[in-house]
Design a protein around this nucleic acid. Structure first.
Lengths: 205, 205, 205, 205
DNA sequence: GCCTAACCGAGACGGTACGTCACGTCTTTTA
DNA sequence: TAAAAGACGTGACGTACCGTCTCGGTTAGGC
């Protein structure tokens, strides 16, 4: 199901030969393969995708309006699902949330595929927007709920807007994974960042 | 001065007609104008730049190897210089550092030019790398020195690697300016972020 | 009745839903309409015909092998029948034969439909061939019989092959109508051409 | 020199790299080769021409607006020049004029190239028009002058419009060569047609 | 005051990809 | 089984840029 027609759920009787799902899959798979070969986004032309997928160009344009829309669907196909939170304590859940970000960062470095998508997803504004609207916003919502729980439990101060608190927790890890692709990501990084955020940077007594 | 020939400083006797600096300027200015008109990076073709600048294509290729290299020089031309730190205290300097980031974020939203460059600078890896190597790294160095001073003065705990501390301070503001272009950036944001980072998120006694 | 299945007259028991004759008519009518709108043959695609006729493409391909065969049937549908000869004299019959050619020429100029078909029937060799084999050859046969009668009656010299005589009579009118679409076709042209051909171009005593 | 820019004779200073005549030649030659291989006009796509000529598509479109204009220039390149008239007598000149038409007809049958061009030149109205305007009209003018001379010399009757006389002479041969490609063209055909036209079809005393 | 080399604008050149259209075949549902 | 609808692989269309390559014409230093 392409992103352009998601709203087509209404029971319009689709006439004529139905679109082949196999074709849809092979197109997305072709993009994934090209990405895995390390091809930069600019070199992944629609014509090459069609050739790789063994598909006509028109078949691609019938489903997506352009390369960007197609890539959005590809991204959705690759994007891993966030793991459930342990739920033992607010602090542990915060650590788990950051840990999933760290894992994603590691995945980017190990998998040629993810690396390519993320490193160059900065490419198109639309692609970035979709990523932002689906992944980022969803995760932010998760963070907000978590922090609200912490505030209610008295573990987190109540005199600061939740969004600011969220940024303070998520920002550092995101800075490391997205903007500093060369930085190390030690195993205990999530714990340290959460604890530092909670306790502050001032010397402890 | 183009990035491709910086090493050409050695006193090779350049014969023939020297390259016109006016041409160089008008090319960069053309890109800036196109960017200001809101044209997405993909639509800014070399041919269009040449047309806008009233210049032959070869004249561009004589100076830069491609669009990316040209854009790197354009970026250098528009990138504002960081303001000096007040130096009154480590806390004030940290606030000033974050404040310069916040100003940049505001500029991106107000100036069509900066907005375009940044929002889509995620475009090309090379462009990103140049930005990273020149601007980001430079600013990180500034942060590192600042924090080192804070540690020496006893204002910041010494048991955490400086890079981690830096990320904790810079990350939240960067998250707000770069990755959440829709978020508000209140005037006292820098102060609040610094203070929160220093004091921690736990409820204060 | 399509040209591809003319030999299908034998009483093969046709099973399943019978082909709709109305569909057949509406397809040919669609072509005629498009032709009347002045569309050049190249722009009359099978898809457009199907759309105009409100018919599936397959329904067309089930009946004709391609556009040319379809057009042949269309041509048969619009080609007017030759009027009968008066039979009063050989000379009058020759005039009547040429007159029917002249009428056709005038029709081409007045009717957008005929004009289009003829002016560009030069299009496809197959279409031309069909026209030649059905219309031209048939008319030639008519001319041959007429001239043979004239020779038998002593009105036409017997020392020249009939085909040559036929060409001498028909050629000038055809040249005017087909190859010189701008030329005038005065009412007495047929008479004058026949008389000139009979009497010769030399000055009369 | 392409047909689209013939009027560019005015001494405009041509700037930029001049168009290569070799390229121009190789394009036309490519079309000629494809025609000689017997490819029907419809199968001779611009892309195939470009491929055969080892040339970019844009290079073709830079010179000609489309396939038709290109074919017009190709036709000019193939079209043989009419031989000079003997001038001994009006009758001999008329025979020579018809003979050149007959030769052209024979050439069409022998050379795969000419055959293809003429047999399918009926293709495009534009191509036909160009042929008409350059070749046909020119030849008609030749015929008109010839006949006017005959009338002045008293060899041809003066009471008939020259154009009609011309059609009576040229029509039969044209009918044979263009519209009846299967007909025989005996060596003495030109003489016989001229003599028959002059003397008339009535039995001679 | 030439000479010559490199510059400059313009634009032609062989390519590649674009997004659209039509081809003729196929695969659905509905009749 | 036919019919309407429309998806499918194919391939041409005409356009836009790519990066390279000529052109005629400038514009400097070195002779």
């Amino acid at each position: 199901m392409s992103s352009t027609e998601q709203e087509d759920v209404r029971q319009e009787i689709r006439r004529g030969r139905p679109r082949s799902e196999a074709v849809e899959r092979s197109i997305i798979e072709a993009v994934v393969n090209l990405l895995e070969e390390g091809a930069p986004l600019t070199e992944i032309s629609i014509e090459r995708i069609a050739r790789t997928a063994g598909v006509g160009k028109a078949t691609i344009y019938r489903r997506w309006k352009g390369k960007e829309e197609l890539l959005c669907d590809v991204m959705k196909a690759i994007e891993p699902v966030d793991p459930p939170l342990p739920g033992t304590s607010v602090r542990d859940d915060l650590v788990a949330m950051l840990e999933s970000l760290r894992q994603r960062g590691l995945a980017q470095r190990s998998s040629a595929l993810l690396h390519n998508v993320f490193a160059q997803m900065k490419s198109s504004p639309k692609l970035w927007d979709v990523y932002h609207d689906t992944v980022v916003v969803a995760r932010r919502e998760m963070g907000r709920e978590l922090i609200a729980r912490g505030v209610a439990e008295g573990a987190i101060r109540a005199d600061v807007p939740i969004d600011v608190l969220n940024d303070i927790l998520v920002g550092p890890m995101l800075l490391r994974t997205v903007m500093r692709p060369d930085a190390e990501l030690p195993e205990d990084l999530s714990e340290r960042l959460v604890d530092l955020a909670l306790q502050g940077l001032k010397p402890q007594l």
